[in-house]
Computed example of a mutant assay.
Amino acid sequence: MRDIQAFLSNFQKEMNWEISDDNYKESKASILHNYMLLTTEVSEVAEEFRAIFNKTYKLAVDEGMDEDRAFEMAKSVHKENIGKELSDCIAYLVKFANYLDIDLEESFYQKMEEIKLRVNKDQR
Score class of each variant (00 low, 15 high):
residue 49 F to M: 08
residue 71 F to H: 06
residue 2 R to P: 02
residue 50 R to L: 11
residue 19 I to Y: 05
residue 19 I to Q: 03
residue 43 S to C: 10
residue 56 T to H: 00
residue 28 K to G: 02
residue 73 M to D: 02
residue 67 E to T: 12
residue 121 K to I: 05
residue 122 D to T: 07
residue 27 S to L: 09
residue 94 V to G: 02
residue 67 E to K: 10
residue 100 L to H: 14
residue 34 N to R: 05
residue 89 C to Q: 05
residue 51 A to T: 06
residue 15 M to I: 01
residue 3 D to I: 12
residue 107 S to E: 09
residue 85 E to C: 07
residue 29 A to F: 07
residue 33 H to Y: 07
residue 74 A to T: 02
residue 82 I to P: 03
residue 25 K to Y: 10
residue 49 F to E: 00
residue 22 D to V: 10
residue 42 V to P: 01
residue 31 I to G: 04
residue 32 L to H: 03
residue 95 K to M: 10
residue 47 E to G: 05
residue 113 E to W: 05
residue 47 E to Q: 12
residue 3 D to P: 04
residue 20 S to D: 15
residue 14 E to R: 11
residue 93 L to G: 06
residue 96 F to T: 05
residue 82 I to D: 04
residue 48 E to I: 11
residue 37 L to G: 07
residue 27 S to R: 13
residue 67 E to P: 07
residue 64 G to P: 01
residue 39 T to K: 13
residue 116 K to D: 11
residue 45 V to I: 14
residue 61 V to I: 11
residue 122 D to H: 12
residue 25 K to Q: 15
residue 38 L to N: 06
residue 100 L to P: 06
residue 72 E to R: 11
residue 58 K to E: 15
residue 105 E to G: 09
residue 94 V to S: 02
residue 56 T to M: 09
residue 83 G to L: 06
residue 20 S to C: 13
residue 83 G to C: 05
residue 113 E to D: 14
residue 108 F to V: 03
residue 21 D to V: 09
residue 118 R to K: 15
residue 61 V to Q: 03
residue 49 F to Y: 15
residue 103 D to I: 08
residue 83 G to W: 00
